[in-house]
Amino acid sequence: MSTQTENTSNAPSNEPSPKKGATGWVIFAFFVIGFGFSLLGGWVGFPKMLYTEVPHPIDFNHALHMNLVYDGCNSCHYFREDGSFSGSPTLNECRDCHGFVMGINENEEKFVEEYVLQDKEVPWNIFSKQPDCVYFSHAPHVNGAEMDCAACHGDIGDSESLRSYQENRLTGYSRDIWGWNMSRLGEPEHAPRMKMMDCVNCHVEETDSQGSCFQCHK
């Protein structure tokens, strides 16, 4: 707008009006400030509106347990004979050691009293949970492509407590799927993002094909 004012005033009168140029700048400044506020609202406020924090039923300390078990990650997350993956542990993986309250701290007491002694499975929040229509298998990635757990899950395996879990209020999906950074730019914050195109991008790189729909859907 301001350039047009300059052009028209330049040509006939050869005397640019300073007042008109100043108004242009004021309007432009308002626009910039307003745009800045909207962006800020969008990036800061919108995620708060879209996502809600869900508390974990029980906190879990990976680092501590890794010193106690025999078989590393496999003690709790293992492959079954048919190639399927056990995923989050059931009480069977905990009972040997947690058959009674050790009295270490409240967290352990709560775990044993509310779940182990009552024979009730812990309803873990699954950070990486995909929508129901998605078929994902660990075998091609861990056995086939020999990928590390951390390549897709971040450093949960070495963590001392479970990080915060947030759920999308509209879809009920974990925030990890879209990624914690709303703009999806830069390094992922906690774990690599896992929207459909994130799976596909790696597949194109590694297998030279984006795959057909039924590869990942059921």
Binding site: G83, S84, Y135, S137, A139, G144, F214
Partner: peptide, 21 residues
Amino acid sequence: CTFCYHRFQQARQKAYAEGNP
């Protein structure tokens, strides 16, 4: 009908676990 495609996925997964997809 999908020719029970999930059974193909399972067979494929098992084949992966056994080392020959």
